Simulated assay, not measured.
Amino acid sequence: MARRKAKDQDKILSHPIIIRLTEQQYKKVADLWLNSDCRSIGEVVRKIIANRPIKLLHKDISMNAPMEEMALIRKEIKRIGVNINQQTHSFHISQNPIERSFHSSKTAETYKAIEPKIERLMELISKLAEKWLQK
């Protein structure tokens, strides 16, 4: 089965250009590529030739620890939510009032376990917001 032709034939990259760079020039272009939103070195070179801006991406290493902690809290909250859903399902299935009261008390305990996690999450978010908004 043949491939469909692109609708806009003018935008197809059909003319390869081979250039040679010194080691220093190549490192400069490669550094631009690694720190930018471009998917290839060729895209970096095309943007340079077309005089278009290259968006450089900056990773703040100081944010790694809070982001990892927030990801762990997110996982824990998700697990607690799954437990609450299971307990709610068991509550709705049960016919016995004693069993229903057991499931409701178990769900209340689970809700209490989630409160400190949410408080810690809010502390982290407020610290991140202070850091973000000071710029």
Rank of each mutant, 00 (worst) to 15 (best):
Q86F: 06
A71L: 05
E115L: 13
Q87F: 15
K112Y: 02
P16N: 14
P16Y: 11
A108N: 07
L57S: 09
I93Q: 06
E123F: 07
I73Y: 11
P53L: 13
W132Y: 14
I18K: 13
K78I: 11
I49Q: 00
A108T: 05
K5G: 07
K28M: 06
S101I: 14
M63P: 08
S14N: 08
V45T: 14
E130W: 04
N35W: 08
F102G: 10
M122E: 00
R39F: 00
L32F: 11
K7L: 05
I84P: 10
P66M: 10
Q134D: 08
S104W: 12
I77P: 04
E119F: 03
R74C: 05
K7I: 00
M1A: 04
E115F: 03
N83S: 14
S40W: 07
E23W: 07
A30M: 05
K135F: 04
R46E: 00
Q24C: 01
N83M: 13
N85V: 03
G42R: 13
K75E: 05
L56E: 03
P97K: 13
R74M: 10
N35H: 02
C38Y: 03
L72R: 09
A129T: 01
H58Q: 15
N85G: 00
I18M: 10
A50L: 06
M1W: 04
V44R: 08
I77A: 10
S101R: 15
F102A: 12
E99W: 00
K131R: 11
Q25E: 15
T110Q: 09
D60M: 12
I84F: 12
K112N: 10
I125G: 14
I54S: 03
K47L: 12
S126K: 09
N96G: 09
K117E: 07
L124P: 06
K47Q: 11
I54R: 10
S101G: 10
L21P: 08
S126T: 06
T110G: 00
I48G: 02
S105G: 01
G81E: 13
G81S: 14
K5D: 05
I19W: 11
S90Y: 15
K112L: 12
S126W: 01
P116T: 14
F91R: 08
A50M: 01
A65N: 06
M70Q: 06
R4W: 05
A129W: 01
I48N: 01
A30G: 05
I93D: 03
P97N: 04
S36M: 11
L13T: 04
D8M: 01
E115R: 13
D10Q: 06
L72T: 09
Q134F: 04
A30S: 07
R100Y: 08
P16M: 12
A6E: 14
E23M: 07
A129E: 02
I73K: 08
L133P: 00
E109P: 11
L124C: 04
L32Q: 10
M70W: 04
M67P: 03
I125T: 15
G81H: 14
I17R: 11
L32E: 03
E130R: 09
I41M: 09
R3W: 09
N96M: 07
W33D: 09
I17T: 11
K112G: 11
I73E: 07
I54V: 10
Q25A: 13
E123L: 05
I114M: 15
R46T: 01
K59H: 10
L13N: 00
Q86P: 02
Y111R: 15
W33G: 10
I41R: 02
T107H: 09
I12F: 02
Q87C: 15
L124H: 01
L133Q: 02
N51I: 02
